[in-house]
């Protein structure tokens, strides 16, 4: 039933002779929560930036849903079907929560200047749909009562959820979350976990790049571990946890668990 959604083959990226990504290959299947972990400097962020078009890889190929995927500009990524959230929350602060999500609908809607000025019925209809869709997504992530609040007036955990709603508004094939648990307290993490599982169960594919090993082990279906730009282990959380190279990468050589 499952098919590979994002296939990454032998991606390389060097920075002045240092291989930040060294022949990285992974395959994310549709409908799973895929975790990418690794110690600091392992290449997680570089990978994320290559995937989202910020950096161009030196070599290697990406296939999204069976089609060649090669973003040349950051704004093409969302259109192609990969939406992201940011490690340090980046919302449109002075706009309301609802407007933030409505901006997420931008790539899937068409109203231009003429629609705005003339107010023709097709344009108004699209605008109403955008609004309704955004309300639904706010409710989906548990922010139904906050539609008219300024984004920066929301609590930290709510801002994270708003970012997820905004990303979902682009109708992504892959939702990539960059350290979504960063700065969250224990109860916020529990809520985040159930939200991520709900999103997966509703048919979405998620990629999680995360420091919090406990969260990743708990929520991910499969995990890849990066170290010094190479994939050192792939598998279910239970397998990866026992992998000797992973233990070595995290705890140092000679460690026994």
């Amino acid at each position: 039933m499952n098919h590979p959604l994002l296939q990454i083959e032998k991606v390389n990226k060097q920075f002045g002779g240092v291989a930040a990504l060294d022949d990285v290959s992974l395959s994310i299947e549709a409908g799973e929560i895929y975790g990418l972990i690794g110690p600091n400097g392992a290449g997680k962020t570089t990978f994320f930036n290559v995937m989202t078009g910020l950096y161009t890889p030196d070599s290697g190929r990406f296939q999204l849903d069976g089609q060649e995927y090669q973003p040349t500009a950051v704004h093409q990524v969302a259109r192609a079907g990969i939406a992201r959230t940011f490690q340090n929350i980046r919302l449109f602060n002075a706009m309301s929560a609802l407007e933030n999500v409505m901006v997420g609908r931008h790539v899937r809607t068409h109203n231009g200047v003429w629609a705005a000025l003339s107010g023709h019925s097709r344009g108004r209809e699209e605008e109403a749909q955008t609004r309704a869709h955004a309300h639904r997504l706010l409710a989906y992530v548990g922010l139904a009562g906050f539609a008219n609040y300024r984004a920066d007036s929301l609590s930290y955990g709510h801002q994270r959820r708003l970012e997820i709603a905004r990303a979902l508004a682009t109708e992504p094939r892959l939702l990539a979350l960059d350290e979504p648990a960063a700065g969250m307290n224990a109860s916020e993490k529990v809520q985040l976990r159930s939200l991520l599982e709900k999103i997966r169960d509703d048919g979405h594919t998620l990629l999680l790049i995360e420091h919090d090993v406990k969260l990743v082990m708990g929520v991910c279906d499969r995990i890849s571990v990066l170290d010094y730009g190479r994939v050192i282990a792939v598998g279910a959380p239970a397998e990866v946890r026992r992998h000797p190279q992973v233990i070595q990468a995290y705890l140092g050589a000679g460690a026994h668990v």
């Binding site: 989202t52 093409q76 969302a78 939406a83 992201r84 901006v103 931008h106 682009t170």
Partner: peptide, 12 residues
């Protein structure tokens, strides 16, 4: 105006 990078990431 609020965040150009985030706007690009949303496909603008």
């Amino acid at each position: 105006r609020e965040d150009e990078e985030a706007a690009q990431a949303m496909g603008l």
